[in-house]
Amino acid sequence: MTKHEHIVSYKTIITVWLLLLVLTGVTVGASRIDLGALNIWVALGIAATKSSLVISIFMHMKYESPVFKLFLLIALSVLAIFVGLTLIDVLYR
């Protein structure tokens, strides 16, 4: 393997793990408060935070070249477009 590969330290990984546990607690707590339609967005927001932690640190995305990041962005945007355009039909039916 090439020498410039980044080695993620134990400390970073442990910190991220603890953060993920805390965020899980927060999302469960938030779901017990009735915020109406906001609930789903809070849950999704926290899920997005958790997943970006997993992707950037656990999956080393933070240390990859920009092309990896661009491709991830493309994949996520395409999924968002598929959901969005489907909703154009369903929301206005």
């Binding site: 477009i81 355009l85 154009i88 039909d89 369903v90 039916r93």
Partner: peptide
């Protein structure tokens, strides 16, 4: 982005 043009007569919304 154009898949639903196969479905104009399916009963989906006019906006779509």
């Amino acid at each position: 982005l154009v898949w639903a043009h196969h479905m104009y007569t399916s009963g989906m919304s006019d906006t779509a």
